[in-house]
Design a protein around this nucleic acid. Structure first.
Lengths: 196, 196
DNA sequence: TCCCGACGTTAACACCGTTAGCATTGTTAA
DNA sequence: TTAACAATGCTAACGGTGTTAACGTCGGGA
């Protein structure tokens, strides 16, 4: 026989072409530029062919999301095995995490649904500056009255905000509003405050 | 005269109707369900009327983003003034931040571009579990070899991950890849590790 | 040789954001 | 009072999107 095997192989090949073309478009012009029609154009097949390989557009994106998590896990694992001590591992893995996010920006944005919407206009807006001022003021005071008066207020503000946003958005992605979120929040914030 | 004033008022009124209708749609069906056509339908005007009040769809979203940041700032300010001591303020503001994010989910998602994409499918996927396992392992070891052997590994893992993601995504939104990001990361992670 | 099933196509449906062009209407000036 | 004008809101279209139904064609098995 071997005929159905060959067909299977050819089918897989087209699947690969679809993902390849999709990735090329996303990398060059961002995820918002990705469309089924452009993929079809690029691989020189008609549109329904794509639906023979993927249920819908979301399934294509899900495939890249899976790839992204796999890549990140691999990199973290490499970093981890390169360090003997657990605390060293955590420091180094944080670095690797950061590097992955910015080297593979397209992947990371897809993985965590960073749409990057109207923020463009609001950045550096008075509203945002007001928000920053409120937080920064408390942090400045806490530093002044604490054991590390030389600490950088601006840096600490960003750390504080990042912790808050990280916890909230991870919890939102998980979508299960379990009470663990509150615990994580208190844990992280109390840890942060001790560092002031 | 007063005629042009009346016209101005009527114009403002339609602007209000647009925002009201848009908010109703977003609240009931999410931002992805919001379209110019549906707003026009809802307010019983034709489509171009909307473009007389907003340059484009993004401008409508930007208006809500501004509102969101203003609301959050107000709430944080209230919380802040209710507490005399800076460290108390930071604890309470974190709580307020959390509450705002989940009470005003639609606002928060818009403000930070949380698209919530293909994550649906990847949640609880083996890829994600693998990632969790790698991080959790190091954290468990660090806890075991540290001064707080009773700490909850799972909680600490979420805290660790949230810190990483928060820093990365705030930095990505700001889009200026300044070296401060690295500092924030190291600062937050070293603080976290001390808490293990 | 005939039939069947798989593959790939065209063409459509129902949406989307955006804009050009037109009609109507209320206001102002002659 | 009437003519000109500016503002208002409309229809209709353009070019795009994801998705699918219906059709043709062609290779493999009976």
């Amino acid at each position: 026989m071997g005929i159905i095997e060959r067909r299977q192989r050819q089918k897989e090949e087209v699947r690969g072409l679809i993902l390849e073309a999709a990735w090329k478009i996303a990398r060059e012009e961002g995820w918002q530029a990705l469309s089924i029609r452009r993929i079809a154009d690029s691989i020189e097949y008609s549109i329904p062919v794509i639906y023979a390989h993927f249920a819908n557009k979301e399934a294509i994106l899900a495939e890249f999301t899976r790839q992204g998590f796999t890549m990140l896990a691999e990199r973290l694992n490499e970093t981890k095995t390169a360090h003997p001590e657990a605390r060293q591992q955590l420091e180094a893995m944080a670095q690797t995490y950061w590097e992955f996010a910015f080297e593979q920006k397209e992947y990371y944005q897809l993985m965590f649904g960073l749409g990057i919407p109207a923020c463009e206009a609001v950045r550096n807006s008075p509203e945002l500056q007001h928000l920053s001022a409120i937080m920064t003021d408390s942090i400045g005071q806490a530093i002044a009255g604490g054991p590390y008066p030389g600490a950088d207020t601006f840096l600490k503000f960003h750390t504080y905000w990042s912790i808050l946003h990280g916890i909230v958005s991870i919890q939102m992605i998980k979508q299960d509003s379990d009470p663990l979120g509150q615990l994580i929040l208190r844990d992280a914030v109390s840890g942060f405050i001790k560092s002031l």
